[in-house]
Design a protein around this nucleic acid. Structure first.
Length: 552
RNA sequence: GGCCCCGUGGUCAAGCGGUUAAGACAUCGCCCUUUCACGGCGGAGACAUGGGUUCGAUUCCCGUCGGGGUCACCA
């Protein structure tokens, strides 16, 4: 009787690990190619932090002609959510970040290193667990949850570290025949790793992001195969990332403290250790305290939130890239028209501690991204958003596409485009006055500013219609007439003149144009009025101005 | 509590023993031949703290304080 008999008793059908080692050979990639992955659990929506990790991993693999795959970590079936996998795949697609290999739907996958869903890899984990048992590096543990609880409370009483380790273990040194007998008797058990570690010794580890970190060696006999036959995270990580030939494990820094365990697992399994990059999570300020963005409390934790709000995926990615490598911003300013993929991303420039999520900054990034879009692109994107979230806007845009393109094209496509759209949900409010039906039915009122005396307003508008308005004027002529009108009314034709002698003039050309602007749009803030008039057309301009006069 | 990580303006951050301590967002002025925006110029605003080491510390070491992570048959 030896460990081999025990291993055979526990996993009689498991293959020899050499089968898998041959089946999943080293990838044939060029020197320096990064193989990395996004490995979420299908337990709900994709978290912005998950997208962040995926973006970092994917960017790196793209940059080095490596491979980026999606692995589904569904070893905890209790927490699994319906259509969880589809949700993840769709979210990645929404952000144009689909993986090169891995799951492509709830049940299908592509790639040579699968299965990419852990629950489909049961036999693989068992083969490696069997291997460990044969080597005497893992053992069956018969402790019940109650026993474990008892151990824990004893440890607490004795003021010692909690866990299943060293002298506290019950099954670690159980004689072989006793183990076999218990199994034959049908007792329940799980498989534990027999840790060779000594916590008095330190291990040095270099993390690509965190730098050098020293830890005591792991001495916990963690469970590697659970009662349901599925592996725990730690074991699955070691087996999968080895067999899938991952070069860089890029994950959230909550895993940093299990690195000693993972290193040990890789060593005992005879695997080559991948590089680790532990990313600090994106935080939120909560009453002066930092905390992780929470799925429960923060709507902005879900990536779907950004799409709902109408923030372009590109903007979210640029913002995230900004957090990841702060020199991205400078690069972006210097390379306005390049694709963000051309930015040379660097893992070790990533911040060691977690950044606070800044919606204001995101929106600023988004404004810049959108300002560079053509009218067509804005039209298409807004329409796509409206189809899902704003039916009224959808029909408004579709009713007269050419007109909508003109509206969205105002002050766009030039050197200094406007930056007043941060998200698609801003668009309707932004352009509604340009649509006759919305303008006519709006309950906004005419709010005049400096020149607000009814008689004066009426005079400005009447004179403008009768004497100065001509849709065929070029911009300079149009503006000169605005000045002429100001002068005729006794106001300053130049702002400078007004500033020099405010008492003499009472108002200036800007105030006059504001009167016309308000009459035309009921707004104080609008893009260039000359362009607006041209998009509206002469008839509509005159009709709006007359309507305003009547209302006075 | 044990172990580990972190601490530069409101936020994101450069900096790596000698700097007027960058830059971006936000904020406040001013300017830019109409408003707003864009753009330009300028202002205010920071090295958590106490000890060392050093001719000299934001940079190195230790303590304190503060923040975060982790200690499951969850990932």
């Amino acid at each position: 009787m030896d460990n081999k008999d025990l291993a055979n008793l526990i996993f009689p059908n498991a293959k020899d690990i050499s089968y898998y080692e041959e089946k999943y050979p080293e990838r044939n990639l060029k020197e320096g190619a990064v193989v990395s992955r996004f490995a979420p659990s299908p337990t709900g929506f994709v978290h912005i932090g998950g997208l962040y990790q995926a973006l970092v991993a994917r960017t790196l693999t793209k940059q080095t002609d490596g491979a980026f795959f999606l692995r589904i970590e569904d070893t905890d079936q209790k927490r699994e959510v319906e259509n969880g996998i589809e949700g993840i795949i769709d979210s990645l697609k929404d952000f144009d970040m689909s993986p090169d290999e891995g799951m492509v739907s709830q049940t299908e996958e592509v790639g040579e290193y699968g299965p990419y869903k852990q629950s489909d890899r049961k036999e693989i984990y068992q083969a490696y667990a069997k291997y460990l048992i044969e080597q005497g590096k893992a053992y069956p543990c018969f402790c019940s949850p109650e026993t474990l609880e008892e151990i824990r409370s004893n440890q607490e009483k004795a003021m010692e570290r909690t866990g299943y380790y060293g002298k506290w273990t019950r099954c670690r040194r159980m004689p072989l025949d006793q183990q076999i007998e218990k199994i034959k008797n049908g007792e329940h058990y799980i498989i534990r790793f027999k840790s060779p570690g000594n916590p008095d010794k330190k291990i040095k580890h270099h993390d690509v992001i965190k730098g050098n970190v020293d830890f005591p060696e792991n001495d916990q006999d963690v469970v590697i195969i659970k009662a349901d036959g599925l592996p725990t995270y730690h074991f699955a990580h070691a087996v999968d990332d080895h067999l899938m030939r991952t070069t860089h494990v890029i994950r959230s820094d909550e895993w940093l403290s299990s690195v000693p365990l993972h290193i040990q697992l890789f060593m005992e399994l005879g695997f080559k250790l991948p590089k680790y990059a532990h990313i600090a999570p994106i935080m939120k300020n909560d009453n002066g305290n930092k905390r992780k963005l929470s799925k429960r409390k923060d709507p902005e934790a879900a990536v779907s939130y950004y799409l709902q709000e109408g923030i372009p995926a590109d903007a979210v990615k640029e913002y995230l890239l900004n957090i990841a490598n702060s020199n991205f911003e400078n690069w972006r300013r210097a390379n306005k028209d390049k694709k963000m993929e051309e930015f040379e991303f660097s893992l070790n420039k990533m911040s060691v501690s977690g950044a606070l999520f800044d919606m204001v900054k995101l929106l600023d990034v988004s404004k810049i991204v959108i300002s560079k879009y053509s009218a067509e692109k804005v039209y298409e994107e807004t329409l796509e958003w409206a189809k899902r979230f704003d039916k009224e806007l959808e029909s408004l845009l579709e009713k007269d596409k050419d007109y909508s393109l003109k509206v969205l094209g105002i002050e766009r496509g030039n050197e200094k485009p406007r930056k007043d759209i941060a998200k698609w949900s801003d668009v309707k409010e932004n352009i509604s006055y340009m649509y006759k039906e919305l303008f006519d039915n709006s309950n906004e009122t005419y709010e005049f500013q400096k020149i607000s005396d009814k008689q004066k307003v009426k005079e400005v508008l009447t004179k403008y219609i009768e004497k100065y308005f001509d849709i065929n004027d070029d911009k300079q002529a149009w503006f000169d007439k605005m000045k002429d009108l100001s002068e005729e009314m006794g106001y300053a034709r130049e702002v400078k003149m007004f500033k020099a002698e405010p008492e003499k003039y009472k108002a200036h050309v800007g105030d006059v144009s504001t009167v016309i602007r308000v009459a035309l749009t009921k707004r104080h803030n609008t893009p260039d009025m000359y362009e607006i008039m041209h998009v509206l057309g002469a008839d509509e301009v005159v009709s709006r101005l007359k309507k305003c006069i009547e209302s006075l």
